[in-house]
Write a protein that binds this DNA or RNA. Structure first.
Lengths: 158, 158
DNA sequence: CCTTGAACTCAAGTTCACTTTAACTTTAAT
DNA sequence: ATTAAAGTTAAAGTGAACTTGAGTTCAAGG
C-alpha cells in the first residue's frame, strides 16, 4: 500500500553504489529483476537492494557472477525472502570465506618459513606449490593448499 | 661448470606448472628472462624457477602482473639474488597479505552479525558497505573496510 | 638422411565484469 | 507546455592475463 515501494534505477544507484550500467548488466544476466514503468523504465523492488548487498559481498569474497547467480537462484522466486532464506544462502558460501582465510594464513606462515629463509623452492616449498602440478608426481605432495578461489582470482578491477 | 644450469621451456613447464604460453607471455612482458640457443629456442636459468614461484605466490595474493613486475625489478640485475634480496621483496607485499586476512576476518564477523541476522542492510551494514559510496554522506561511515585488493579482485580464471 | 616431437612466431581470440557511446524517449518539476 | 534530468537500447569497447591457431624450424635418435 505504500506508494514508495518501487525504486528507479537512479535511486538504486544512490542506495547501492553500483553504477546504472552494472545494474542493467545484472538484470540482463538475471541476477536481479525489474518491472517496467509505462514508458519502459526499470522499477525495482526494495528487495533488490538486499540482493545487491549480497552480490557485492559475495564478489568481494571472490565468487564469479555465475556462482553468485547460482546462489541467488536458491532464493524463493515468488515470496519475499525471509531471514531464514538469506541465512541458508550465506551458510553456503561461508565455507569459502573460511577457506580463504586459512589459505592466506598458510600463505603467511609459509612466507615466514620459506621466503623468509630465502628458499622459495618450487619442488619443496608448499607455499609456492599450491597445486597439483608438481614435477614428477601424479598427486602433488603439497596439494590442496589453496582453494580455487585463491588459485586464480578473477576479473577487472574498477 | 655444471652443464645443466640452463633449462628448456619444456623443463620449466614441468617444474613450474606454468603453461609454455604463459612463460612466453611473461618473457614478453619482461617478468622473466631467457637467453637463446643457436637455433633461437629459449634457455632459462634455474633462477627463473624462483621468480616463477614468486610470481605465482604474488598473484595468488592478488597482485597484478604490473605490480609483480615492479617488485621483481627490485632484484639485482647482474648477480644472482640472495636470501636477503628475496626477503626484502617479500616484506614489501607482506602487508598486502595481512590486509587481506583482516579484511576477510572483518567480512566474516560481519557475516555473523549481519547476514546471520538477515538484515544485510545496505545503509547500515558495514559488511556489505565496504566503500566510500554510501548514500547521502561524503565520507562513508563504514569506509575503508576492505583494501583495494579485495574490493575488486582481478582477471580471468584459468 | 629422415622422422618425430618440442619449440618457434605473430596475430587473433577468449573470458570476465563491466563501461562507453550514440541516438533517442520518459518523467518530473516549473 | 516546456524543458532538463534521468532513463532507454544495442552494440562496441576495455583491460588483464593468457590461450589458440597456423604455419615453420629445431634437436635428437635411428
Amino acid at each position: 500500500m505504500d506508494k514508495r515501494d518501487v525504486l528507479s534505477i537512479g535511486e538504486i544507484v544512490e542506495r547501492s553504489g553500483f553504477a546504472a550500467s552494472a545494474l542493467r548488466f545484472y538484470e540482463s544476466e538475471g541476477l536481479i529483476h525489474a518491472t517496467r514503468s509505462g514508458g519502459g523504465q526499470r522499477r525495482f523492488e526494495r528487495s533488490v537492494l538486499r540482493r545487491l548487498a549480497f552480490i557485492r559481498a559475495a564478489s568481494n569474497v571472490g565468487l564469479t557472477l555465475e556462482e553468485i547467480k547460482d546462489e541467488l537462484s536458491r532464493l524463493p522466486a515468488n515470496r519475499t525472502p525471509t531471514k531464514a532464506d538469506w541465512h541458508k544462502i550465506s551458510q553456503h558460501w561461508r565455507g569459502r570465506l573460511d577457506e580463504q582465510i586459512s589459505a592466506l594464513e598458510r600463505l603467511k606462515s609459509g612466507l615466514e618459513s620459506c621466503i623468509g629463509c630465502g628458499c622459495l623452492s618450487l619442488q619443496r616449498c608448499a607455499f609456492s606449490n599450491p597445486g597439483d602440478w608438481v614435477a614428477g608426481s601424479e598427486k602433488a605432495p603439497g596439494a590442496g593448499l589453496l582453494p580455487d578461489s585463491l588459485r586464480k582470482p578473477h576479473p577487472t578491477r574498477r
